[in-house]
Design a protein around this nucleic acid. Structure first.
Lengths: 150, 150
DNA sequence: TTACATGCAAAGCATTTGCAGATAA
DNA sequence: TTATCTGCAAATGCTTTGCATGTAA
């Protein structure tokens, strides 16, 4: 397996992601390996395309925005990451692949995971003509410091 | 009260909205009255800025996109409507002002309300430094006809 | 009268696309 | 070798803004 880091740990989130990439048929190119490492070697993250771009740049590498977007979409389709839309003009990509919900601090733009077990959610049964894809729960809060209503 | 329709019903959603507009201090201009009527005289709706624009045009009136967007934002701030972001490139505005959740049929782009009572949701208590603003629940489903995974 | 609102066109911004050159297998 | 991928720049599409004109009170 072609790794981006030196130490091989077959159980790391990064190794698992690489394995899934190879198995899926898409090529584990240099760019995809760098991005997989960025996404999965720092624990659970919520990152935007732009932040990811900047992070790559900080390591003195360079991956074009087009490739960042394409790769994020491919990883999403592979189920490696999850896209969450908290407001109309930015998508965040979530690297926690366990089922979970989100706490969004609106005035700070910060997002945190809420483990599924911390929320009790019962939904009515879905009609046979529909298949459940996902349930998004976003608990939207504001920090008290922010007194403004809008 | 300046009404856009002929029959005065002080208990209609439209009348209530007009009242809230007047009380809020913003002027109940012709455009705002037309949009309030469109939004609140047809029951609970989920409508985009563009659809609202088209609907106005169908009645042989004309309101600019800038005004549509400004008005939707103002109505949202007044609590008359609620903005829901189902995917990154379109906001829908929801005229149901009762607390509720959403069922989103992804491959059709259709959205339906789920009354709060139909879903059992318990969230952990919020830290004192945060105030709860809203809880979004979006049940994402796909119609079975759509066999593709992505 | 005057503060506020509207409409137009232009700007903004995240994301996508077309295509020539590069690269993995 | 060849199908796939990358990067650039241009295009797209939703939303916002600047500003001159219009309008409610």
């Amino acid at each position: 397996m072609i790794m981006e880091n030196k130490v091989f740990d077959p159980f790391s989130a990064y190794s698992k992601a690489l394995k899934k990439i190879e198995e899926s048929g898409i090529r584990p190119t240099k760019q995809r390996r760098i991005l997989a490492r960025m996404l999965f070697e720092k624990g659970d993250r919520h990152i935007s395309a732009e932040n990811l771009f900047d992070e790559v740049k900080k390591e003195d590498r360079k991956i074009s925005m087009a490739t960042i977007y394409n790769t994020l979409k491919q990883f999403t389709n592979l189920g490696l990451i999850r896209e969450i839309v908290v407001d109309q003009n930015k998508s965040l990509y979530c690297t926690n692949n366990k089922s979970h919900y989100h706490l969004y601090i609106e005035d700070e733009g910060k997002i945190h995971d809420i483990p599924t077990e911390n929320i009790n959610l019962d939904i009515p049964s879905i009609p046979a003509c529909l298949t459940l894809h996902n349930i998004d729960v976003i608990v939207r809060v504001r920090s008290v410091k922010d007194k403004k209503k809008s």
